[in-house]
């Protein structure tokens, strides 16, 4: 008698694999919870565990810090503009690569990937040396240029994945029905890639908002939020305030990531790996 075919999904994992997987998941997630704990500590000088006491005092102190608001504002402005530039450049490149096969197509994907595939200091020192050689003073815009450059590939990956599933016949149909290029873009292509742009944009924003290595070389005297945190890491002055800032950064960054994740669950192709 034919028995019921075994469902491969119901296969049980050998216990060493389950245990290894469990430990790895715990290892990856555990430190984030520590951040939640320490934001409430009463300890001002050290990182004593168990916590000597719990308080909400440092939330108020952090709220009143002008330098923090300035750093946060700068980070948001940089990430916003870098994301816009990345959206434009990434989408154009994705459209070109998806639309036609041409010589050097692979080389272009490779070049866009380089700023995140090469060690971070390479991009940083390269920009720094170029700004130095041409006497370009450090400013808001030097930070944006660096960030936009490594954010392009995030948008590009997402939009390329969407275009791969797109049949160009819908564009041809639109043109055949008398729409011009702009109308076709606005009413056919843009709605079609909108969620890929949203997901790519969210991830690009998160990447820029958190970047510190390239920024160290391109910021001059300006202080983004990651630079502020880095200075606290090497020369701690405001430990309790840093604890609170760390908690808020985790919470703020979870928003774009969860949004991008939801889009990926619905559309099934968003590139959440870096």
């Amino acid at each position: 008698m034919p028995s019921k075919p075994r469902d491969p999904q119901a296969e049980r994992a050998p216990w060493p694999i389950s245990l290894g997987a469990l430990l790895a998941v715990l290892f990856i997630n555990f430190p984030i919870f520590i951040i939640f704990l320490y934001a409430f500590t009463t300890d001002e000088q050290t990182f004593t565990f168990p916590l000597p006491g719990m308080t909400l005092k440092w939330f108020g102190v952090a709220w009143g810090r002008e330098d923090l608001w300035a750093a946060l504002g700068l980070s948001v402005r940089v990430a916003g503009i870098a994301t816009l530039v990345a959206l434009l450049l990434g989408t154009l490149a994705a459209a070109a690569v998806s639309r036609t096969k041409f010589f050097g197509r692979e080389a272009i994907s490779f070049m866009l990937l380089l700023p995140i595939a090469l060690p971070g200091i390479v991009t940083g020192i390269a920009l720094r040396s170029a700004f130095g050689l041409f006497d370009i003073p450090f400013s808001f815009w030097t930070i944006v240029i660096g960030h936009a450059t490594f954010c392009v590939v995030i948008v590009y990956n997402n939009v390329v994945a969407r275009f791969r599933r797109t049949s160009w016949s819908i564009v041809e149909a639109s043109m055949d029905l008398g729409a011009n290029g702009w109308e076709t873009f606005k009413r056919i292509i843009l709605p079609h890639i909108a969620t890929a742009l949203l997901a790519g944009g969210m991830l690009a924003f998160a990447l820029s908002f958190d970047e510190v290595i390239v920024t160290t070389f391109t910021a001059g005297q300006e202080s983004t939020l990651p630079i502020w945190i880095f200075s606290q890491l090497t020369r701690p002055r405001d430990r309790p305030v840093t604890n609170v800032v760390a908690l808020f950064v985790v919470l703020i960054m979870a928003i774009p990531i969860l949004l991008a994740y939801r889009i990926s669950q619905r559309d099934g192709e968003t590139q959440l790996s870096r």
Binding site: N29, I32, V249, I257
Partner: peptide, 15 residues
């Protein structure tokens, strides 16, 4: 895995 991957790098070091 994705949430910690995209979570703040500096905060992870700090933790």
């Amino acid at each position: 895995i994705t949430l910690p991957l995209w979570s703040s790098y500096l905060v992870k070091v700090y933790s």
